[in-house]
Design a protein around this nucleic acid. Structure first.
Lengths: 218, 218
DNA sequence: CATAACGAGGACTAAATAGTCCAGGAAAAG
DNA sequence: CTTTTCCTGGACTATTTAGTCCTCGTTATG
């Protein structure tokens, strides 16, 4: 994950605007298709068709399917982190966490719980099959968790959270609840289990608030 | 999931002991291989070789790969539920829950967190690809959660858990933490995130105990 | 112990999908 | 405006993997 650019061109070739756009189109199409069908169930021909490009373009921009998939891992990682930065970078209160939760639930409910987390499902599909993809995903999860734990640190520093709260562990727990929630919601085609899971994690964090409020999370 | 038998023979053919054993061997091999490599990355030839059978045997016992996979979903579901019944059927106390947690962590740490949950990873791989598999997995998750919630109900009835505890929600939250824990542990090749996730869920349940032990929950 | 029914084995075919190559056209440079 | 360089498109090949079929061996039973 050395590159912050969402769709970085492959190295040392003079690259035109047009070429960049094509590469981007391919990644964008791969992202959509592999999100709904899964990585392994998506063929390069599907990607070619959806991206309105040709086979030679695919292989021009990506050496093989594996490299496309790895580029997609990077691409999605950047997208998710960008989105999550928006929701978490200014996190300073419990209610901010609730808003963050609501946004995730809302987005997932548009699919009726289907498809799960773009990162989580790749992690399951690829971890046992592509070591490099796995390690990129691991880094992305770590960065995501850090956005959360940084927010919790701010809350602890400001006194909102008690001193004995462990932001790293709380963030890991919250991330696990989120991923498990996505997984169960996907199996159920229903967002409800994800809500329950996130609410559990939020309750747990709430139990570390300095001035516990009476109301349950929702 | 109408059949309790782990490896039921296909219907209306006189079946010999040997045939049953072969079918079982195939399922057992598919189970092992698909656990470590994933369903889609495992070929029928891999299964044939590992099970010491022939192509014709595969197609004798299973119409096609999809049917084999579906049989595997059933097979694994039965195995997991059988195992989980052992750990949960007599659950009556919080310490029983802790023992259950320890057994899962212990088992997963033997793989250094790799491979994840046999059910959860199938759910991710198959949910968007085989409706029937998805619904069988959904049923299995429901049965698994029910083993947990039944235990929590017993705890509530005996007074160990407060009346305002919701066993169903607690069970869903625990299952999500477990699945998310498996997923993160698999990505990390390290069981630690799974421990953190399960501990969070157990803390949450603990907060509903009638006589909170040692540590203040909030 | 003969014979019929069934199981085992593996060569073969079909289909899907990954990956190559080349001709032609657009864009940049002089 | 010509030439050169790079991009585009799609036909083509190779490879992998699913799925079929036929022969031989084994087991059960009268």
């Amino acid at each position: 994950m050395s590159d912050e650019q969402v769709a970085a061109p492959t190295n040392r070739r003079r690259i035109s605007q047009r070429g960049i756009a094509t590469r981007e189109r391919i990644l964008e199409a791969a992202n959509r298709l592999m999100f709904v069908r899964g990585v392994n169930a998506t063929t390069l021909d599907d990607v070619r068709e959806a991206s309105q490009t040709s086979k030679s373009q695919l292989y021009h921009h990506f050496a093989d399917k594996q490299e496309l998939v790895r580029a997609l891992v990077k691409y999605r990682g950047a997208l998710v982190l960008q989105r999550e930065r928006g929701g978490l970078e200014r996190l300073r209160s419990f209610s901010g966490l609730v808003r963050w939760r609501n946004a995730l639930v809302q987005a997932n409910s548009l699919n009726n719980g289907k498809y799960g987390c773009g990162l989580g499902s790749m992690a399951v599909e690829l971890s046992d099959q592509d070591e490099q993809a796995r390690s990129m995903l691991l880094e992305t999860f770590a960065a995501w968790e850090k956005l959360i734990s940084d927010g919790l640190h701010r809350m602890r520093d400001s006194g909102a959270l008690r001193q004995d709260a462990d932001p790293e562990k709380l963030a890991t727990g919250l991330m696990a609840a989120l991923q498990g929630g996505y997984l169960l919601a996907n199996a159920a085609h229903n967002v409800a289990p994800m809500e329950v899971a996130l609410d559990m994690a939020l309750e747990h964090i709430k139990s570390f608030l300095s001035q516990p409020s009476g109301e349950p999370t929702r």
